[in-house]
């Protein structure tokens, strides 16, 4: 059995689903953030696979931009988490309910 495009797509979907579960189920903001990264990586894997099996380079080049954006996003997100921790002294999601009600 040859490894085809659909194999990579299924891996990518599983990885995305795992990240999705983490985002919904976990309560620690930092772990939720890691799971968001997993989802992003899953989408880049699908992009690279499509790009390879299409025989063009555009998808792979696009992954460069996604990686750059992801790095910037992590920096800003973690800065926000640190600022939040300074103010509320917690990173647990169920205790961060100031916008509720």
């Amino acid at each position: 059995m040859n490894v085809g495009l659909d194999h990579y797509l299924i891996i990518s979907a599983l990885l995305f689903a795992l990240g999705f579960f983490g985002v919904l189920l976990r309560k620690n903001t930092l772990v939720v953030y890691m799971c968001l990264e997993l989802m992003l990586i899953a989408s880049t894997l699908a992009l690279v696979a499509f790009s390879r099996f299409n025989g063009t380079l555009d998808g792979s080049v696009f992954v460069f931009f996604i990686l750059t954006i992801a790095a910037a996003e992590v920096a800003v997100g973690l800065a926000i988490i640190v600022a939040l921790f300074r103010k509320r002294h917690t990173v647990q999601l169920e205790e961060l309910n100031a916008l509720k009600h």
């Binding site: 990264e37 990586i41 894997l45 790009s51 792979s60 750059t68 992801a70 790095a71 992590v74 973690l78």
Partner: peptide, 26 residues
């Protein structure tokens, strides 16, 4: 998996950016 998809450069960048910067930052 990126290397298996003939995208060794992207694999390198992924390791550099994610393993080198993002996970260290985390």
């Amino acid at each position: 998996l990126f290397v298996m998809l003939d995208a060794a450069l992207l694999a390198f960048v992924l390791l550099l950016v994610y393993a080198g910067a993002v996970v260290a930052l985390f």
